[in-house]
Design a protein around this nucleic acid. Structure first.
Lengths: 139, 139
DNA sequence: CGGGATCCGCATGGATACTG
DNA sequence: CAGTATCCATGCGGATCCCG
């Protein structure tokens, strides 16, 4: 596959679906950790650190639904639930980590470009900035 | 790189940043189209089809900010603005399209798993469903 | 321990109107 | 043509409380 031309009609829909799926706030983190070894709910919760149990549940349900992880319940007391990547999940991990490597390698180029852009915009005008998220604002 | 173990501490942050960046509703589409050849604003607008000019502007500004596209203004009347991928943008296109290929190849496996999951949940109980987004609900 | 249910703030994104 | 500005709907994600 060369970087030129790409069937953009319907393929991009699938691409965007996967990227949106995987591009949310926690999915990649969870998948990556699960890629190392199976994990229990609270183990995962502690490891990810910062995630609420609601989002962990939501994320895991989504991954389970799409066939990326399995959820195994051991009916003991207290209950024990283990999450593990499926084959599909491990296969997904490959291109995701490829993109991950790219991200790590080019992190600085991106933030450099970002700094340049923001500096150029700030130098032109703008005595002060009343409000805004931080990345989008009127010029 | 093997699919086992991955430094998850700070790397995942960069990964997730890129994925969130690229995983929004329009970025991939725009980048993919621009990967074919440079394009003007309304040309892009027509090609993407479905995007509002607000979102196209936002998406392009973000891509420009991060150094993925260049914005060239021809001070003619009427004005003419061309958008083109930078080298960084074209490099990004490679892993993104790799993930894209994965997505296309495994689309059916995912939707099959999804159907299975939904069927299993629906068969268990649920006479009717009062409300909800569609992917989250009580069991 | 492993969740479900609910409330709520904030960001994303669509529609519309106006401008150089 | 190529935007900017504004208003508004939806949904993601966090906090809290409760349950088996």
């Amino acid at each position: 596959m060369k970087p030129d031309h790409f069937e953009v009609t319907s393929e991009c829909t699938a691409v965007n679906e996967i990227l949106s799926r995987v591009g949310d706030k926690w999915t990649v983190l969870v998948v990556n950790y699960l890629g190392n070894h199976p994990m229990r709910f609270n183990e995962l919760r502690r490891t990810v650190s910062g995630i609420s149990q609601k989002m962990l549940t939501t994320t895991l349900r989504g991954l389970e639904r799409d066939g990326f992880v399995t959820r195994t319940v051991f009916p003991t007391i207290p209950p024990r639930v283990e999450y593990e990547l499926t084959d599909l999940g491990r296969e997904l991990l490959v291109p995701v980590r490829a993109l991950g490597e790219w991200a790590i390698e080019n992190e600085e180029r991106v933030s450099a470009a970002r700094k340049r852009f923001d500096a150029a915009r700030g130098a032109a005008q703008e005595p002060f900035r009343p409000a805004g998220s931080m990345s989008e604002a009127a010029e």
